[in-house]
């Protein structure tokens, strides 16, 4: 077995195990911890796909910032005692699991029966990725996708103001009962 294949299977197992733990563990703090583990594994998967800059951003944004947000809110609320971690009802739970399993089976079947190699035809808008990929990425981001980039900046400003306004509100729209 080559090193590439071993790395892929190792990372796949850690990613899926982390995901299963997020979904199945009852304590939200442990769920947040295993979510951070999953994020780090996904960053490593990005490294195996030679997307080094995106892997770094994944580590900083997800495993850093977003996880701090989650853990801080959990600590603020002291949610260790969980009344009902899972939905009630055996039948509806079975139907939900079955639905997710069906979707997964459908997608995996479609992937498995797709034409071998499943290469998309090289389009006219394809750019040759030559030289430093990070430099290429920045060049594309700031030329072709500049409008989306600026729009995202505006969106982030709106979100920051909105999040502060939401969390400062007392809650409820009908006044205090």
């Amino acid at each position: 077995m080559t090193a590439d294949a071993f790395l892929f299977w190792f990372l796949a197992i850690t990613t899926i195990a982390g995901g299963i733990t997020v979904v199945s563990v009852a304590n939200p703090i442990y769920a947040a911890l295993s979510l951070a583990f999953t994020m780090v594994s996904v960053a490593a998967v990005f490294v195996t796909l030679e997307a080094y800059f995106v892997a770094g951003v994944q580590l900083i944004v997800y495993a850093g910032a977003v996880m701090v947000l989650f853990v801080m809110v959990l600590m603020l609320f002291d949610l260790k005692h969980e009344l009902e971690a899972f939905a009630r009802g055996k039948v509806s739970g079975a139907i939900k699991l079955l639905t997710a399993g069906l979707l997964g089976g459908l997608l995996i079947g479609a992937i498995a029966y797709s034409p071998e190699g499943s290469k998309i035809a090289v389009g006219a808008n394809q750019v040759a990725v030559a030289g430093d990929p990070t430099k290429n990425l920045g060049y594309r981001l700031f030329t072709q996708h500049i409008f989306a980039f600026e729009a995202l900046g505006v969106l982030l400003l709106v979100i920051a103001v909105g999040a502060v306004a939401l969390s400062r509100s007392k809650g409820g729209t009908h006044g205090q009962r």
Binding site: A12, T15, I16, G19, I20, V22, V23, P28, A31, A32, L35, T38, V45, Y62, V66, F70, V73, L74, L79, E82, E84, A85, F86, A87, G93, K96, L97, T99, A100, G101, L103, G104, L107, I108, I111
Partner: peptide, 28 residues
């Protein structure tokens, strides 16, 4: 691998009752 992770997140959103854990599943 991507499909498996997506379905795990879907199961989390459908099955969990804690809003914060549901947000975590959406991140998955």
């Amino acid at each position: 691998l991507s499909t498996a992770l997506f379905c795990l997140g879907l199961i989390g959103v459908l099955l969990r009752r804690n809003a914060i854990v549901m947000l975590m599943s959406i991140e998955l």
